[in-house]
């Protein structure tokens, strides 16, 4: 059995038992360090604890393919969404076994009794990880194609899982219609509330749910292309704001000082160490700010915003802000 297969078996066991010992994270680190020449250059130190594993900045997925498995034609590629002309990050893995089993296991743990039918109002590309994840929860009826598609309201019949982003939900509410979902239904809201051109009022959006959708349960989902595992909030009643996100036990979360990069108690930039990223990069540093509460059953994460809002000072700007001359 190869080192990858042996580790994969241990990760599968962690998903099944919801117990992921620290030694497994450290073994996965050593495996990726040994198997990826690029990661070996980044990860030169011995790790004694999970927070010693150097977190790779998420933006590096736009620059490099860091994974420990060499590329093959059948590899699975998830790409980040991108604006015109900007590079898209690519998350490559040999297959989606860990992704799929981990996603479904934690969804079931957090959401419980999830409906079998999925109505997706998500702006997703064919190579989006969000689209892939949603399809794991049941047959998908998609009603977003650049805008909310006709028929979306009619499709919202109980019981169903309405999978949507905050902005897509806002767009749905901007159209005429209403649904009468009951507690057998779930509204999953993912994505941030601050876009390139607008900022949504999160409480107002959640408070509008009873009037427009009835009384479904509401959950928040936090995931990103560069991670194979997701965090979920506990379901709340329609009209309430979801609380903290709970990561699965096989994905550890901690906060780091955004200036020094050192792990901190309290608020900081969020770092995820995801065993399901066995084929890519174990430890990721995001540009999200948050507060983390360590729990064996799953770290609890409160999102506090994004680094992107900070303005680069000076009149020399980053390349993506310059108009590239062809």
């Amino acid at each position: 059995m190869s080192a990858r297969d042996a580790l994969r078996a241990r990760v599968l066991q962690a998903i099944e038992t919801r117990v992921a010992p620290e030694a497994l994270f450290l073994d996965a680190y050593r495996y990726q360090q040994a198997a990826s020449p690029l990661l070996a250059r980044l990860w030169t130190a011995e790790a004694r604890g999970i927070e010693d594993i150097p977190a790779v900045p998420v933006a590096l997925f736009k620059d490099l393919d860091l994974g420990p498995v060499p590329p093959l034609p059948g590899d699975v590629l998830f790409r980040t969404s991108g604006t015109t002309g900007s590079a898209r990050g690519v998350h490559r893995s040999r297959d989606t076994l860990l992704y799929d089993l981990g996603a479904v296991a934690h969804y079931r743990e957090m959401v419980r009794a999830g409906p079998a039918r999925v109505v997706s109002i998500c702006p997703v590309d064919a190579d989006s990880s969000l689209g892939h994840m949603v399809a794991l929860f049941g047959p998908v009826e998609a009603y977003f194609d650049g805008a909310v598609s006709a028929g979306a309201w009619a499709a919202l019949q109980a019981p169903c899982l309405l999978a949507t982003t905050a902005f897509a939900l806002d767009a749905l509410f901007a159209t005429e219609g209403a649904a009468t979902l009951d507690a057998r239904s779930v509204v999953m809201v993912t994505g941030g509330f601050k876009g390139r051109h607008a900022r949504l009022d999160a409480p107002a959006l959640y408070e509008a749910i009873p009037a427009r959708l009835g009384s479904p349960r509401v959950v928040g989902e936090y995931g990103m292309t560069e991670l194979s595992s997701q965090s979920w909030t506990a379901p709340v009643a329609a009209g309430e704001l979801p609380g903290a996100f709970v990561a699965p036990p096989w994905m550890r979360v901690y906060a780091a000082d955004p200036h020094t990069g050192r792990a901190v108690e309290g608020e900081g930039v969020l770092r995820f160490v995801d065993l399901c990223n066995l084929d890519s990069v174990l430890a990721i540093e995001t540009q999200d700010l948050g507060r983390v509460e360590r729990r064996d059953e799953g770290d609890r994460v409160t999102l506090l915003g994004r680094l992107e809002g900070a303005e680069l000072r000076g009149c020399s700007l980053r390349a993506e802000r310059l108009r590239v001359q062809a």
Partner: peptide
């Protein structure tokens, strides 16, 4: 904080 994050990205890219 954003600049510090960007420096870490650049450092990782340069190391790799």
């Amino acid at each position: 904080a954003e600049e510090a994050s960007e420096i870490r990205r650049l450092a990782s890219l340069a190391r790799a």
